[in-house]
């Protein structure tokens, strides 16, 4: 479906079928998760990134059913449609933001999501111990969420942040790559 149609579906579902919650509650809850992880791992920010991604993955596995139930979406014809659906419907329904899809590679297997606003990172300033600015990806849970949801619809992807406003870059950009389509493997003895 085209970008405008996806945007319309996203807006529609957001207005009618979603319960709303206070945004600052989400920001503070996510912030305390990250802060506690940083304390628990004593500044090993690479490990914190991994844990955030794992948590996001588990969220994604479950989130996809909610997404499909609320939006009644059918299968996407190709990876480009998947990208538009994620950006205009998925993020709209759960975070009320619409990142832009950009920077497609020529084989249509990689794209970027550019976030103009990130409600998870409102009011956040990374600690200036010299390493957080270079090692911590604050919103890494979102990468895990994408990996989990797409795995449940038979796509194996790799998602990671390429830049983050919290680190001083100009935009927050997430790079998503399609690794392979997971075909249903028939149980042994049935072919």
């Amino acid at each position: 479906m085209s970008a405008t149609k996806a945007a319309r579906v996203g807006e529609d579902v957001w207005k009618t079928r979603i319960d709303k919650v206070n945004a600052e509650l989400v920001t503070l809850t996510y912030g305390s998760i990250v802060a506690q992880l940083c304390r628990d791992f004593e500044g090993d920010y690479l490990e914190v990134n991994k844990q955030l991604e794992k948590m996001g993955y588990n969220i994604g596995l479950r989130l996809i059913e909610d997404f499909l139930a609320k939006t009644n979406m059918g299968k996407c014809a190709n990876f480009r449609e998947t990208a538009e659906t994620i950006a205009k419907v998925g993020f709209k329904v759960f975070l009320n933001i619409t990142p832009t899809v950009a920077n497609w590679t020529t084989d249509n297997k990689q794209f970027s999501l550019i976030f103009e606003e990130n409600p998870l990172a409102d009011f956040v300033e990374l600690p200036d111990d010299g390493r957080a600015q270079n090692e911590l990806w604050y919103s890494n849970m979102l990468c895990g969420v994408l990996r989990g949801t797409l795995e449940m619809v038979q796509m194996q992807v790799d998602a990671h942040f390429a830049s983050d406003i919290l680190r001083g870059n100009e935009v927050t950009e997430m790079r998503v790559t399609l690794v392979r389509i997971i075909d249903d493997e028939l149980p042994p003895g049935e072919d």
Partner: peptide
């Protein structure tokens, strides 16, 4: 399906 997505998955 909606009930499943809510009460089971969540």
């Amino acid at each position: 399906y909606e009930l499943y997505a809510d009460y089971v998955m969540k």
